[in-house]
Amino acid sequence: MELTVNGNQIQVPNTVKTVAGLLQHFKLHHKVVIVERNAEILEQAKHTETLIFDKDKIELVHFVGGG
């Protein structure tokens, strides 16, 4: 399955089915990550139930230092 993640075209195994699975794939599941799938912002609670599909555009953002 091919996804666009943060602007990068990335192949992920087809075993990755959900947003939560994708975060696990990138080893980000223990971090504070905010996910946007095809321009829809997902609450944390939706990560497990939200399915991902080929050609999805995913944005993964987090908090960084700023004023």
Partner: peptide, 18 residues
Amino acid sequence: TFSVRRMNIFEASQPNFL
């Protein structure tokens, strides 16, 4: 205060200030 930015998905082990 802090900002919101894209994660570097290729370096997931990077520490975060939080």
